[in-house]
Computed example of a mutant assay.
Amino acid sequence: MYVVLLTYTAPLPEIDYALPDHAEWLARQFELGRLLASGRRADHRGEVLLSRPMSLGTLEAALAGDPLLLRHLAHHEVIEFSATRTGPELRAINEALAG
């Protein structure tokens, strides 16, 4: 699994202008089953995405299509982790229980 931290690098008015396109991109990622959760960081400096388990290459390819990144309005950090404990809602994707 991955946590993706998006950090805005442009003024908020520019971010707000691009958000409808970014929201469409997010909706598509959810439709494709790539994301479990997304939301704006409390400090309004960016966003957090939680992905399903997949290859890093698949995730990076998906991120490459994010309008915020394409327009150089944000940069991202990908944090990979193996879920060893989850709540019941995420048990089906718990990598430690898979197999």
Results as ranks from 00 to 15, higher is better:
Q29I: 01
Q29H: 06
Q29K: 10
F30S: 05
E31N: 12
E31I: 05
L32D: 08
G33A: 10
G33W: 09
G33R: 02
R34A: 11
R34K: 09
R34L: 15
L35C: 05
L35F: 14
L36G: 11
L36Y: 00
A37T: 04
A37L: 15
A37Y: 11
A37H: 08
A37S: 10
S38Q: 11
S38Y: 13
S38N: 12
S38H: 12
G39V: 09
G39H: 10
R40A: 09
R40W: 03
R40N: 04
R40S: 05
R41T: 14
R41W: 07
R41G: 07
A42S: 13
A42R: 15
D43N: 14
H44E: 13
H44Q: 14
R45W: 02
E47Q: 13
V48I: 15
L49Y: 07
L49N: 00
L49E: 01
R52M: 11
R52N: 10
R52G: 00
R52V: 09
R52T: 10
P53F: 04
P53S: 07
M54H: 06
S55W: 00
S55I: 02
G57Y: 01
G57W: 01
G57D: 15
L59V: 04
L59I: 05
L59P: 00
L59E: 01
E60V: 12
A61I: 03
A61N: 12
A61G: 03
A62N: 07
A62V: 09
A62E: 12
A62W: 07
L63C: 07
A64M: 06
G65C: 07
G65Y: 06
D66V: 03
D66W: 02
D66N: 10
P67V: 02
P67D: 05
P67Q: 05
P67I: 01
P67T: 01
L68E: 02
L69G: 07
L70T: 08
L70D: 03
R71N: 14
H72V: 07
H72S: 13
A74D: 00
A74V: 08
H75W: 10
H76A: 15
H76C: 14
E77S: 11
V78A: 12
V78G: 02
V78C: 12
I79S: 05
I79R: 15
E80N: 08
E80Y: 10
F81R: 03
S82I: 11
A83T: 11
A83E: 09
A83K: 00
A83C: 12
T84I: 13
T84Y: 12
R85M: 15
T86S: 15
T86L: 08
T86Q: 04
T86V: 13
G87R: 11
P88I: 14
P88R: 15
L90D: 01
L90C: 06
R91Y: 09
R91K: 12
I93F: 05
I93R: 00
I93W: 06
N94R: 03
E95K: 03
E95Q: 15
A96Y: 09
L97R: 12
L97P: 00
A98N: 02
